[in-house]
Design a protein around this nucleic acid. Sequence first.
DNA 1: CCGGCGTCTAAGCGCTTGCTCACCCTCCGG
DNA 2: CCGGAGGGTGAGCAAGCGCTTAGACGCCGG
Lengths: 212, 212
Amino acid sequence: MGSAEETAGGYRPWSEVTPDAARRLLVAAVEAFAERGYHATTTRDIAGRAGMSPAALYIHYKTKEELLHRISRIGHDKALDILETAAAGPGTAADRLGAAVRSFVLWHAAHHTTARVVQYELDALAPEHRDEIVQLRRQSDAVVRRILGDGVAAGEFHVPDVPGTTLAVLSLCIDVARWFNAAGRRTPEEVGELYADLVLRMVGAARAAPGA
Amino acid sequence: MGSAEETAGGYRPWSEVTPDAARRLLVAAVEAFAERGYHATTTRDIAGRAGMSPAALYIHYKTKEELLHRISRIGHDKALDILETAAAGPGTAADRLGAAVRSFVLWHAAHHTTARVVQYELDALAPEHRDEIVQLRRQSDAVVRRILGDGVAAGEFHVPDVPGTTLAVLSLCIDVARWFNAAGRRTPEEVGELYADLVLRMVGAARAAPGA
DNA sequence: CCGGCGTCTAAGCGCTTGCTCACCCTCCGG
DNA sequence: CCGGAGGGTGAGCAAGCGCTTAGACGCCGG
């Protein structure tokens, strides 16, 4: 068991990675990178977790860094997709911001192992790959900033500093990957709910009315 | 220049580290760890930055890990001190929470190089040292939780989930160390001010009145 | 039955790592 | 003027690193 809990719940990640051995190696790498960090993880450790010899890794990936790049790319694509889906939804700006934070945080909590690698091992990427990922992050930033802008324009939000608040909101959500499950009384859904509420207060769209 | 900006402003950190050569090595280690991460930093790199030979490091420190431990310990002591000072201050719970967030964030922004090492390289510590540091973090958590509890009891704050909100507040502040200065239009003071405002909104102590 | 391809392994190469050791300065009390 | 202590160096060791190579396996169309 152990790693089973990560893939529980019917959600099957990494389905886009084939063949099977390549996926097993990638999943093993995610676990190892999340646990010890990229630089502290050896290729022997990754191969061992996948039940293979060290050399097997190089049949499917050219370098250890390519593994990290693949993980980072897939993860960022997923995270951006989650944000964009929520942003394109119906309702007021407050509705969309709440949905975005709720689903974004839910993903970071439920897949905190992956998210930790994706969000905190950026500097281990080769410069070219790093630039590519940074571009995706800028898109995430733009999505959130747009919702905030909409809310301000509609008079729903009171936000003096939209770029700064955007940064804070994303920072808050992303950092969930770092601390989540440290003991784990909360479910990912509960954290998402809590954070959606906190963020809506931050932007002054308080459903904080005492009766709510 | 370069590293000079870090120590600018009259604040002289690491004054508790003697002799001089030991301090130079420690400052070099902070820079290197912040830039590349603990595991990606070599002892040769640290010694080189300090203008010494690789062997010189081992006159003042037993291992590379001891360097990280010293940095982490001093940094956490300082961070906790900042929080406790603000918490012990005068005024309402809102006043104290605002002061705590403002000064805590200010430190994380102004000394983001140090803060990055202190906050994000925890897992590289030996288990015994890690436990020691985790203990300090629990104290930081307790300080913030107490202010929130006070505010709720006094009817100043509306916080349904005090432990969860405490976690979120600290997470938000700490993560400043990760992104700060990525381009740097904002000063540390401005970020502290912005964050104090955001956090006060989060707890429903809105000075969000338009005229404020 | 075969031959080629994709997959995997055992062994190991070249290099870097954290750390050590033998030795050398410089400073300073007696 | 000396001798010892503490701060420093150049060279280098054992271990571990990312990665490669030579060869063996199972599978499958002809």
